Amino acid sequence: MSLHLSRFGSLAAMAVVGGLVLSGCAGTAEPDTAASEPAGSSDAFPVTFEHMYGETVIEEAPERVATWGWGATDAVLALGVVPVAIPSSEYGGGDNLITPWVEDALADLGAEDPILLDNSAFELSVEELLAADPDVLVASYSGLTQEEYDAVTGAGIPVIAPEEALWATPWRDVITDTGRALGLETQADDLLADLDQQIADAAAENPEFEGTTIAYADDDVDTFYLYLPADPRVEILEDLGFVSAPAVTELDSGESTFYTTVSSENLDQVVADVMFTQAEAQADLDAFLESDRGQLIPAVAAGAVAPIVGEENVAAVSPTALTLPWLLPEMVKQLAAATAVAQG
């Protein structure tokens, strides 16, 4: 029903195989020669980051910030800073390859579109990045390879790399890491507190979510994906009060840290009160839910399904500083309807 290897956590499987790209066709715009004022306090520097490739020290507040991966662009913008370069969003980004929530944030800040770093192959073009003349690259939640990291740092640009593994940094850490990198740690803490309050308010308004078991699933070209508790999208569901159904971990084959696949003959074992799912089009969703294989899933047969439909919405399910407030009301609406069915 959707692109499993898309812009958010699911694309990790493709990102880790990408090599270094030193030439590209996108993002060739000349960098703005007028340096902006640093956003953060100079008193916060130097600041040190430990990550999977070692240690990064940022000596002074950056003036030109570039981002890579998922969530860093949103965190930078949510903190009131306009990045000079961001990754293109082939999934959910529309014709201009910029997601609608990023467009909204740029408009709110009265900013022009940043340079787009070609992300179509999930490989960082170091040439494009250097053309933007950044002071720092924030790539906390990304598929940044060792080779890419070495090339960027070798050019004298400090990099905030993933903490422990590719595509594994918690979404909240992306926000706090970004705040520290920009000298806006207090503002990042306030931003995160506000986002957490939005989730807490939604949970309080829907006490029926508490303790209800849920499975987050995606049917994609006859492959059925079941997302595990380590996935940040599942984490949001649990923050709302849902509990990952025991069947989710029982069916885990160990093939990935954030998802497992389930064969058609085992779909009846996907036992949960509610199924949360996604589809790029309503027709795709309906085709699966009405299919014989879809009806094997108890929650589907009962009609207790909470769908997110539309490419932009599917992309937004992965939480960031901007996507969470953008999609949370629709998520809660669908979850409330499905829970009402499940609880009779």
Rank of each mutant, 00 (worst) to 15 (best):
F224R: 05
T73G: 00
A151I: 09
L226W: 05
I157W: 01
T176P: 11
S264F: 13
G54E: 06
D150R: 09
L11F: 06
E208I: 03
F45T: 12
D286Q: 13
H4V: 03
P319F: 08
D219P: 13
Q282V: 01
S6N: 14
E112R: 08
L240F: 08
V84D: 03
F276M: 15
A283V: 12
D252L: 00
E163S: 15
L191Q: 05
P62E: 02
P46R: 08
V76Y: 01
D239W: 05
S142L: 10
W326L: 00
L130P: 00
W101V: 00
P31Y: 09
L22N: 15
L20C: 03
Q278S: 15
A200N: 05
L267Y: 11
F209P: 09
N266Q: 14
W171R: 08
S42H: 12
V274E: 10
I308D: 05
E59P: 06
T323R: 07
M331G: 00
A61L: 04
Y216G: 00
L182R: 07
E311K: 14
S263A: 15
I58Y: 02
E250M: 06
P87N: 09
D286K: 10
S36K: 12
V174A: 09
G40H: 06
P158D: 04
V102T: 05
K333M: 14
Y149A: 01
S125C: 15
A202W: 03
Q295V: 03
D118I: 02
T33H: 14
S253E: 15
E205P: 03
I86F: 02
V82C: 01
S6H: 13
A161K: 04
D196C: 06
E210S: 13
T249F: 07
P134D: 06
G241W: 05
V248L: 11
M331W: 00
N119V: 03
L137T: 05
G24V: 09
P325E: 07
F45I: 04
L192V: 00
C25K: 15
P83M: 01
E280I: 09
Q197Y: 12
